[in-house]
Amino acid sequence: MRSVIDIHGGAFMLGHSRMVSLPQISDCLARGWIVLVPNHRLCPAVNILEGPMQDIRDLLSWIQDGHLDNVISSRGYCADLDNIAAFGTSSGGHLALSLGFDVPKPVKAILSLYGSVHFADPAWRIPLPHVAKKLPSDLTPEFLNKIYDEYPVPTDSSVSLEGQTEAGTGKGPDFSKPRDAFAFTQIASGTVIDVIYSSKDDPGMARIDPILNVEDGFPPTYIVHGMADTMVPIGLSRALLQKLKDHGVRCGMTEVPDEEHTFAAMMEVGSKTWWLQREGFDFLEQIIGKGHGA
């Protein structure tokens, strides 16, 4: 059976595996794919390279080393180790793209939904007033820095950027929690990159930025991005698409009209947005095929 890895978003600091789009998972299952939805360590107590990227790459190695087969073989299934794809939203899109470089054997295909890329672009340093206005005025550095005291490094948080909460209430962040307050403060200030990765040893961020690692032989890649995205501007994905084309990588992109960041969590099945974003999954199917019995 073909496998797909579905990686949650959250600016590398928020969310967990239960905060992904269930309709997207249902679509994948209907195509006959095994869907793996991992957690990963959350920044900033661990950096993006040594935490989230390493954890997702370890999962890929775990599958390729036959451990998934060991889990599912008792149920009469066999994993196809040559047809593994990855997709994710926002920071999860970045982590999916990270399975296309600096790994012994890349995934067969990648789908990035408004993924975080092109970290040298000035857009990553621009404050976001519409996020800042949601923050309380009494947050102190001492309170925010309590996030660094969390031990062990957490692999889940109770809120995501997708508008979901642990209880499913959709009420958004709880600013009485240091993690929620810290993450949204960095997003509002345009300082996310500064807190998730130190550029001292990697000034150009070449080890973490997918757009700097596209080369001939990069896995086929599809991009879906909302045209009204105010958190990860669509121009960043357009730049990635051009880089893919420049290197002859099989690729494509769907631009979804009027959609903001994180639309995947709130779209309605059967809506125009649903059918447009589904073009990305159709692309994956062209590469890895349908699963057994689909």
Rank of each mutant, 00 (worst) to 15 (best):
F87H: 14
P129Q: 11
V117D: 02
Y114L: 03
G115I: 03
S73D: 12
T140C: 03
I126Y: 14
V35K: 03
L95R: 06
S26M: 06
D82P: 04
L22I: 00
L144H: 10
N70C: 14
V71N: 10
M19V: 02
G51S: 09
N145K: 13
K108C: 12
N145H: 14
K146T: 05
L113Q: 11
L49E: 10
R18D: 00
V159R: 08
D69C: 11
L128M: 12
D138A: 01
D58V: 01
S91H: 07
V159N: 06
F119A: 06
E150I: 14
V107A: 11
G92A: 06
L139A: 04
C43D: 13
L59C: 04
P52I: 13
F119D: 04
P104C: 05
K133D: 01
R31K: 11
D149N: 15
W124T: 14
M19F: 03
S98Y: 09
S90H: 06
N39H: 11
P122F: 05
L139S: 05
P23G: 05
I147D: 12
A123V: 08
G66D: 03
V159D: 04
H118Q: 15
S91A: 15
N70V: 12
N145S: 13
A96N: 11
K134P: 02
S61H: 09
W62K: 02
V46C: 14
A79S: 14
L36M: 11
S98V: 06
V103W: 11
L111R: 04
H130C: 13
F119T: 06
V153G: 04
S158A: 14
L95W: 04
L135H: 09
A120K: 15
S61N: 09
I72F: 15
G93D: 01
A30G: 05
L99V: 10
L99Q: 08
S98Q: 06
Q64I: 04
I84R: 03
A123Y: 07
A30K: 08
V153C: 11
G66L: 05
D55N: 10
A96W: 14
L36D: 00
Q24G: 00
W62M: 02
P104A: 06
V35R: 02
F87V: 01
D156S: 15
S116A: 10
S91N: 09
V71G: 12
I147C: 12
G93T: 04
P141K: 08
G100C: 10
L144S: 13
A45M: 07
D82L: 13
D156K: 15
I110T: 12
N145G: 10
R125P: 03
W33F: 01
F143A: 06
P104H: 04
Y77N: 13
V153Y: 10
L68A: 09
